[in-house]
Design a binder for these strands. Structure first.
Lengths: 210, 210
DNA sequence: ATAACACAGATTATCTATAATTTCTCGCAA
DNA sequence: TTGCGAGAAATTATAGATAATCTGTGTTAT
């Protein structure tokens, strides 16, 4: 995938752990013990510590001083918090990106969204969803904003995987299409408000969604 | 101050460096060499590396793999970006905090703002300003949001110190008072829109401000 | 007899010291 | 002036030592 082979061991470890945490392979609250992880990755504990700091910055683990790190738990309040933050920031990004959106970008976004509708599992759908959101806000030219949104998206994904694990069917993303339609018509504010509602809604409990 | 004596060396180093960078004591673009810093703090370079990661998460330094870290530069676009993000997020926080704001909190906020107006130097004013903003949004009950805003505030402060270093006079903060008045009247949306404009304005070039 | 407290062993995080790979710089030649 | 190469410096990773925390067991008091 995106595995650059020659970047520091710490970020490689960080990525591997992030994937597991997001996918729900490690229970929230689990203590991550650096010696064990170091042994698993055939490394020493110093790069592992650095990986922990990276994960902490993404909000995937919490560090208790002198007591190690644990996989961050996510209560319903936290999920709502992340959804609200995403809504606020993605709206900002979309407003700035609006004028720079080309027909080609919108066409690609539509293709991605349709591919997502045909996804057979949650993971594929989430990947498409993430790509869609990322694509339409990328031209905003605000790197810090994009990185923050990315981290928030990871947190959202955790929630998604935890709730829809067992049975799941690909929902057709009407919202995505509505957003694209508004953007094509140059109605950026309309697109932004649909996006805000869409993102906030994604932070609801699975049972309360449809 | 807030110097907990017994927290890890890495965070102590991180805090010290953060202060210097924010205050403008280190020029943007300067390379931070871990050996030198380790020697200065009487530590080894491993905790220094961890401190670097913390600073990187706050956006105060940028890390080029295998080439060390440099103090992050801030162009006008980046400053504007930070201001826009702060505006979006502080508005969100204020909306959530609104219902939980007590008369006592608002009174304290007013006192802080007035103290800021009488500040004799930029640093004191900035401290008061930060405290004011933090105080009125704290009751939102969203820790992740508050932390993100805090980091953005640090970036803003860098800009402030770099621009107003030479001559400076304390501006009377009418906006703060307007926000408090609106909050006292229960008009949260009014307060939010004033706050948004206030924060966005703070991201303007010093020359274009008054 | 049960529960609370305390001590000891073991585990784990944190830090120092040392080695190896990579990048940068300076000098020299074409 | 440009390109190559060797030496130097700095980052990255490893191994070992230190200090703090957690757990389990035994003792004491109620």
């Amino acid at each position: 995938m995106t595995t650059a082979k020659d970047d520091p061991v710490s970020v490689r470890i960080s990525r591997a752990l992030a994937e597991r945490i997001i996918a729900g392979a490690i229970e929230p609250g689990t203590r991550l013990r650096q010696d064990h992880i170091a042994e698993e990755f055939g490394a020493s504990h110093v790069p592992v510590r650095e990986a922990f700091r990276l994960l902490e910055a993404q909000g995937l683990v919490v560090s208790e001083p002198r007591r190690g790190v644990r996989v961050a738990g996510f209560s319903l309040e936290e999920v709502r918090e992340v959804a609200e933050m995403r809504a606020a920031l993605e709206v900002l990004a979309l407003r700035q990106a609006g004028p720079h959106l080309t027909k080609a970008i919108l066409a690609e976004a539509e293709a991605i969204s349709k591919a997502g509708d045909k996804a057979s599992d949650v993971q594929a759908w989430e990947e498409a969803n993430r790509a869609f959101h990322r694509l339409i806000i990328s031209p905003c030219g605000m790197p810090r904003l994009l990185k923050t949104i990315d981290d928030l998206h990871s947190a959202s994904a955790r929630f998604l995987f935890s709730g829809w694990r067992a049975e799941w069917e690909a929902p057709t993303d009407r919202d995505h299409m509505a957003i694209l339609a508004a953007l094509r018509g140059g109605e950026i504010e309309t697109a932004a408000s649909v996006l805000a509602r869409h993102v906030r809604w994604s932070g609801q409990e699975p049972g309360n969604r449809r």
